[in-house]
Amino acid sequence: MFAILGMLVVIVSVVTGYLASHGNLLALWQPFEVLIICGAALGAFMTANPLSLQKRVFKMLPRIVLGSRHNKGFYLQLLTLTYCLFQKSRQNGFLAIEEDIENPFSSELFMGFPDVLRDHEVVNFLTDNYRVFALTGLASYEIDAIMDAEIEQMEEELLAPSHAVNKVAEALPGFGIVAAVLGIVITMGSIGGPMEEIGAHVAAALVGTFLGVFFAYGFVGPVSSHLESLGQHEVKALLCLKACLVSSVAGYAPPVAVETGRKLLPADLRPNFSELSDYLKQYR
C-alpha cells in the first residue's frame, strides 16, 4: 500500500509543479512516445531474461501492493512450527515426523501453520535440511556449511527479479533519448511548415526524454528496490531456520534452538521473548 502511495506522491508532485509553472498538461500526452519507450523496454527485458525469470518477476509484482508475506505473525508461526518438529522428534524419534517431512503440504502439523505453508521455498528448505540431518547424522558445523551454500544460491535466485527490473530502469533513459531522436527526425521533416507544427513536434520529442527519465527514476527503479527488499525478507527467513536447525543438531533443547533463530530476525518484525513464549505454550 505504501508503494502505491509513494507512486502517487511522485505523480502529484511532478504534475503540480508543472502546472504551477503554467505548463500545458495536454502537451505531455504523447501516447506514441510512451509506446516507443515502454515497448522497447519490454522487448529488451524479454530478450535479456529467460522465460522462467520473466514469470517470477510478474508473479512478484502484486506483492509490491500487498506487501511482504513475512510479518511478525509469519515469524511466530515459523518458529512455532520449528519448535513442534524439534519437540516431536526429540520425544518420539525421527520416525514420528517422517511423514510430516516427506509430505509437508498434506501434513496435519504443517497445515496448522498456513502462513508458513504458503511459502514453498521456506517449507522445502526446512524439510530438505532436516531430512539430510536425520539420514546422515552429520555434525552441526557440516550441516551449517551445507545450508550456507544453499542459502547463497537461493539468495541469487531470490534477488534475480530485482536485478532484472533494475536493468530495465537503467535502460529507460536511453529509450527516452531514442524516442526524442525520432521526434527530432519528424521535426526536421516539417521544416518550412508552420511554426506551431514545428514547435509541437519539438515538444513531443522533449517529452520522450522526460518520460524515459521519469519512468526510470520515479517508478521502475523504486520497484526494483522493493523487489530486492522482498527477496531479502525471504533470505532472513532462511537464515532464521538455519540457526534453529544448527542449534538443534548441536544438541540444544527445542526452546533454546528456536530462540537462536528468533534473534536473527529483523528488529521491526521480531517477536519478543515473551510473545514467542506465550505463543509456544499452546503447543507444549
Rank of each mutant, 00 (worst) to 15 (best):
Q282W: 13
S229C: 11
V213F: 02
D268K: 00
E234H: 13
L264A: 09
E228T: 07
L276W: 15
A203H: 11
G218C: 06
T260W: 04
L280W: 06
C240A: 08
S225N: 15
F210Q: 07
L241A: 02
Y252T: 05
P266M: 07
R270S: 12
H226R: 15
Q232A: 11
K242Q: 11
H226C: 12
L227K: 06
F214W: 12
S277F: 10
F273S: 13
V223A: 06
L239W: 00
V258L: 11
A267Y: 15
V258R: 15
L239Q: 14
F219G: 12
F219D: 14
T260F: 15
S224L: 14
Y279I: 05
S247E: 00
S274H: 04
A257E: 00
L238R: 08
K263Y: 00
A250K: 01
L227S: 06
V235D: 03
L245K: 15
F210L: 13
G218V: 06
C244N: 09
L211S: 07
V256G: 12
E228G: 13
V220Y: 04
P222C: 05
K263M: 05
A205Y: 00
C240V: 00
D278Y: 07
A253C: 07
G221L: 10
C244G: 02
F214A: 11
E275A: 03
G261K: 12
H233Y: 15
G251E: 02
S224I: 15
A203G: 10
V202S: 07
R270A: 12
K236S: 10
P222S: 06
S248T: 05
G261M: 12
L264D: 09
D278K: 11
Y252H: 06
G231F: 04
A205W: 00
P254K: 01
Y279R: 12
V207A: 08
G218F: 00
S274K: 02
A267N: 11
G208F: 04
S247C: 09
Q232M: 13
F214N: 08
V235L: 05
L245S: 01
A250H: 00
K263L: 08
